[in-house]
């Protein structure tokens, strides 16, 4: 592509934006609002999952071994379950030591009282959502008397997370549709305003993509700008919220690492670009069918 061609395409795209600044601003605002709401949903869902994962890490399944059962056999049986990430054998003596440490008891006193604890195997699951099912299955493994886990907390968080995901999908679908409609409508306005140029381009032998490219660029610009506004807005809000939560809500720890924030910002921007591209292509397809 010659420099002149590049300039030509860029000037075609930018003239549309300059010609209809309000329409462009409306489209960008729409993309920004939609992406901000979607982004907020995503952040809430990610954080709930993060909390559930933290909870699930501590909430391992404790399997009490029957007396005389071979821990190695039982571990092997448990590991057959694909959902199990790992197991750890804890003798009753170790269990007693852990207990003493946890509650700050005198180990010798406890030992003197006789150790009431069984040998146990701790089972870690890969997906916290599966913990209940895995515990049920573990309870049926030969050599295990009882399998239990500090349930409910994880479950409850996951239930909320599921709700957020589902409502996010519903709201998201509506917003995506609205955004694509707005972008394709602005592209349609540009196509209409430029129908004479387009006609001449067609007649002198411009290729289809040459004619379409400026509109695609225009849509991309709207999408990326909207994404930028949304990313900056949501991330700023999130950082403030995180600081507030740290000070006032000790039990909530928001998921914030620099990597995560950068990835999230990039994701919002990319989604904006995809919206812009898909929206403008829809507009082009609809109104430039003959091109």
């Amino acid at each position: 592509m010659s420099l002149n061609t590049f300039e030509f395409l860029a000037s075609q795209a930018s003239s549309a934006i300059r010609r209809n600044p309000m329409v462009t601003i409306a489209a960008i605002t729409n993309v920004a609002v939609a992406l901000a709401i979607l982004g907020a949903f995503a952040l809430v869902a990610i954080n709930l999952h993060h909390m559930a994962a933290l909870e699930a890490q501590s909430a391992v399944i404790t399997c009490e071994l029957d007396e005389g059962a071979d821990p190695a056999d039982v571990e092997a049986a448990l590991l057959l379950d694909m959902r199990v990430k790992g197991t750890k054998f804890v003798t009753r003596d170790q269990a007693l030591e852990n207990l003493a440490k946890k509650w700050d008891f005198d180990l010798n006193v406890l030992k003197a009282m006789g150790n009431p604890l069984p040998d146990t195997i701790l089972v870690y699951v890969s997906d916290p959502e599966e913990i209940g099912a895995v515990a049920d299955a573990a309870g049926k493994v030969e050599g295990i008397g009882k399998a239990w886990y500090p349930e409910q907390i994880t479950e409850k968080i996951l239930t909320v997370a599921r709700g957020v995901k589902i409502s996010g999908l519903v709201v998201g679908a509506i917003l995506i549709l609205a955004t694509l409609t707005v972008i394709s409508t602005t592209i349609r306005l540009t196509i209409y305003a430029r129908r004479r140029e387009i006609r001449i381009m067609q007649l002198v032998g411009a290729t289809r993509w040459f004619i379409r490219l400026p509109f695609l660029l225009e849509g991309l610009f709207q999408g990326v700008m909207g994404g930028l506004v949304a990313a900056i807005g949501v991330m700023t809000g999130y950082i403030y919220l995180e600081a507030y939560a740290e000070q006032n809500l000790q039990f909530v720890s928001l998921y914030t690492t620099t990597d995560f924030l950068v990835l999230f910002g990039a994701g919002v921007l990319l989604t904006g670009a995809v919206f812009g591209a898909v929206g403008s292509l829809a507009g082009i397809r609809q109104y430039l069918r003959t091109v």
Partner: peptide, 27 residues
């Protein structure tokens, strides 16, 4: 005629080359 009203005569003729990917020198 189908000329573009916001372009000069020169630009109107050059437009036909622009959309074919011509270089500035060619134009």
């Amino acid at each position: 005629f189908r000329l573009l009203p916001d372009m000069t005569v020169w630009e109107n003729v050059g437009f036909a080359l622009d959309v074919l990917g011509a270089t500035r020198r060619e134009k």
